[in-house]
Amino acid sequence: MEQTWRQAKAAFAAIAVPPIAWLFLFFLVPLAVVWGYSLGENTGPTTIDVTGTFANYMRAVEPLYLEIFGKSLIIAGLTTVLCLIVGFPVALAIAFASPKTKAWLLLLIMLPFWTNLLIRTFALIAVLRENGYVNAILEWFWNGGSGLMALVGLQPLGDFEPLTLLYNNTAVVIGLVYVHLPFMVLPLYSALDRMDRSLMEASLDLGAGHMRTIWSVVVPLAAPGIASGVLITFIPALGAYLTPDLLGGTDSQMIANVIERQFKRANDWPFGAALSFLLMYLTFIAIAVQAFVQRKSERRG
């Protein structure tokens, strides 16, 4: 493959230079500026001196902030696991659907992306709140059941107590799973779709059951897809800030909420930058782990 671009260097350069310049100007340069801030000090309400101090990082690794990092990791991890459990059967079903159904199912998975995240989150609030649709449906069944019991001479149920579904950590995880599920399903689907079907047939012919085939054949073959799905679900979930802000209760603060407040209310950009970079280092570690998994599975294949 390397031959082809070496033979057409000019064409390659023409195609590659704009995205590289874009990446450099609008990603690497701002990132470098923020990294500089993370080593700086506030010298006034609007001025920062980059002095090379580690004070911001020292403050960022205080137990208070490490605990918030830890909590964010747990919530993001839980979100990823739930996305994998829910997403794997869905991806499998899409991969084995007829070509026409497949297109429709993929469209359904992508449809939520056509709507702004904020609108979707507010929609979820309307569904989950005490006067929301979930509780309205439950109340309907409750009252129906209560009426039925009275009809057959039993003691009717008491008044319906709406479930508290919003403003707690469960709501945050539900919201994050809802938002990130497509990120998990799509890479899983592409891995499962490319899989050599004859290997599964061989497994079934040789006497393995369906579950055994999935565990011993499908999952190992789909490992790179699982790894990239886990990664691109975990990273944005770790940095989520809108979802905990809108769906969370009083103890649902995640690290991105703290970072946001440093850049806004606290007007402490150096400290906010240091927290952001700690988050980024965690991301790099996650990517390294993913690359490791991928290499291992390639070596096996």
Partner: peptide, 11 residues
């Protein structure tokens, strides 16, 4: 004040 609020939220 911001750090106090962060501590309250994390408590």
């Amino acid at each position: 004040y911001e750090e106090i609020f962060t501590r309250i939220s994390a408590a």
